[in-house]
Design a protein around this nucleic acid. Structure first.
Lengths: 132, 132
DNA sequence: GATTAATGCAACAGCATTTGTTACAATTTG
DNA sequence: CAAATTGTAACAAATGCTGTTGCATTAATC
């Protein structure tokens, strides 16, 4: 796999859950279907649980389930739950002393913010029930 | 530095060139100002030369110069010259056998393509002369 | 209660990508 | 010829993501 496989894994799993909502799935089942490792599945789906999109149950006959109506879960919810930063965050900014650098940063930040908002808006127009 | 520093380095350098277009700059000068290595500068600016935005001259008193009117160089030109793929390209697609995966890929690809186009459109609204 | 099956989590290995560095050939000026 | 500069290849270092192992915890079942 490569970058952004978290979003793919998350949406792929949710897509299947929509088709058969009553079935409880173990990390091992999901991992086998997605061609990855159960721990990776727990890592990714754990984010979705924190965001209230999934629930998990420990112990025998435990596993993963949708936490709410799939019509209320949009692709944007999943994207935001994963905290993906497709764009440069600029977390390592060192207070640019150079005026050009400063002006540049303002311009680019504004564009990136707008484009990110556009992305989220587009993603929010599709629910996971629409994936079929 | 970190990821996407190529775009920053490129725009930062172009921004300074606009302010003093007659000055020829060596990779060493540029690298010292940007806090990086001359070879890195050549790597990045080389892309801009291939795209026709800069020229370089070898030998003593050689260096880098703008290749055209800065009013004609937009941020989108620079972004595209660097071949940055902010979005998932999906080059490693393995012909998804799973129907859910397939439907998902179509949806996401469409959104990503639209958002990428939006990004380029926004970037094309600013020239490097506007950075000040 | 013991066993079994599952999540949660930490730690680390492996791999890919990006950046930084060194070295050297080729080119241009003086 | 000497000095300065780009071009490029090769490699080291750092970073981030994925995969893996191990183990504690929890819940169902016998």
């Amino acid at each position: 796999m490569k970058r952004n496989s978290r979003l793919s894994l998350a949406l792929h799993t949710l897509g299947h859950m929509v088709l058969d909502p009553d079935r409880v799935r173990t990390s091992a089942d999901i991992a086998a279907h997605a061609g990855t490792n159960p721990v990776v599945v727990r890592r990714v789906l754990g984010r979705l649980r924190e965001a209230g999109l999934l629930t998990s149950e420990k112990g025998a006959s435990g596993g993963w389930r949708l936490a709410c109506n799939p019509n209320n879960i949009t692709l944007a919810d999943v994207y935001l739950a994963l905290d993906e930063c497709i764009f440069v965050t600029g977390k390592d900014e060192h207070a640019p002393a150079c005026a050009v650098e400063h002006a540049l940063h303002r311009r680019i930040s504004r564009v990136m913010t707008e484009v990110e908002q556009n992305l989220v808006k587009r993603l929010s127009e599709t629910t996971i029930s629409d994936i079929r």
